[in-house]
């Protein structure tokens, strides 16, 4: 073996080992949750109310609550985020203003989620007077994912070949027509992917909902957007740290984690599937 081949070999082997270790750790985490959680999963667990100090029964209110929060935050963040992304990529020319907004968006994406939680409490819960409610929590989570959605939209639009834009404009299409009929259909699969990935994030966040919507224990389903709800990540936190009987509620915690992971996994699968399916339709 020459020196060159040897260093190739060493580099390649160490990359392989490192990747395997990382993947291995992931599998251990997943396996741990699945083994501990799967035994708790039952029809009753999915559809029942928590009982006996959350050591028995189910987690339906938390599932429904997380569902409401996902839906609510997306109804708010998706249109706003996609429209901002379109505006920034298609209408703002590349000047200091655009770069400034880009910079701020990136920073916003890095702000710890607890800060969003505090802000949401100050603005939605107190100032706007929504109280602890689905709407306040949804808006807070929406704000949190907004930078992600804006960035995804921008990236998706950037990857659309400029020759399609010029081709459309040269045929007398207006800018808006060009965006609607040519640019967006091409970018859409990637935008959708971003949306769904951010749903994964929303469903797992605890800090932003802590002061804005999450209920410690609320064994009934919400009736309006001004109601409080339980949510999976917070429920998990409660079960793991401050239940009335922590030893007894431990299995419930693993079950909750299991459900949460399944939701995130399903979302990612859906994102992949949609990207492929929609991508095919566009290429046709």
């Amino acid at each position: 073996m020459t020196r060159k081949q040897l260093s190739q070999y060493i580099a390649f082997s160490s990359f392989t080992i490192i990747s395997l270790v990382v993947v291995g750790i992931l599998f251990v985490i997943l396996g741990f949750i699945i083994v501990r959680g799967a035994s708790v999963i039952s029809w009753e667990f999915i559809t029942g109310m928590p009982e006996e100090g959350m050591t028995k029964g189910g987690i339906l209110p938390a599932i429904v609550g997380t569902g409401c929060l996902i839906l609510g935050s997306m109804i708010f963040a998706f249109p706003v985020g996609v429209l901002s992304g379109i505006y920034m990529n298609e209408y703002l020319s590349d000047n200091w203003f655009r770069r400034f907004i880009d910079f701020m968006t990136n920073n916003l994406a890095g702000v710890p989620s607890i800060v969003f939680g505090l802000f949401g409490m100050a603005l939605f819960v107190n100032y706007l007077g929504f109280g602890d409610s689905i709407i306040a929590g949804s808006m807070t989570l929406g704000l949190l994912t907004l930078p992600v959605i804006i960035r995804t939209t921008e990236e998706a639009l950037k990857s659309v070949d400029d020759s399609l834009r010029t081709g459309s404009l040269a045929l007398g299409a207006t800018k808006l027509q060009t965006i609607r009929k040519v640019v967006l259909p091409v970018a859409f699969p990637n935008i959708i992917t971003g949306l769904i990935l951010s749903i994964g994030r929303v469903s797992g966040e605890t800090a932003p909902i802590l002061f804005t919507v999450a209920a410690y224990f609320l064994p009934n389903l919400p009736h309006s957007i001004y109601d409080q709800v339980m949510a999976l990540p917070y429920h998990l936190y409660v079960l793991a740290t401050s239940g009335t009987n922590m030893e007894e509620s431990r299995p419930m915690a693993y079950g909750t984690a299991f459900v949460l992971i399944v939701i995130v996994l399903l979302m990612n699968l859906l994102a992949n599937f949609l990207r492929k399916a929609l991508g095919k339709r566009v290429k046709m």
């Binding site: 070949d161 020759s163 399609l164 010029t166 081709g167 459309s168 404009l169 040269a170 045929l171 007398g172 299409a173 009929k181 040519v182 259909p185 091409v186 566009v282 290429k283 046709m284």
Partner: peptide, 26 residues
């Protein structure tokens, strides 16, 4: 103006749509 003046580019740039929709676009 652009409706009355056609342009063909160096690199073919059909839209990712059907043949029919490409021609009907204008």
């Amino acid at each position: 103006i652009r409706k009355r003046i056609g342009m063909v580019f160096q690199k073919p740039n059909p839209f990712p749509k059907s043949i029919f929709e490409n021609v009907a676009y204008g």
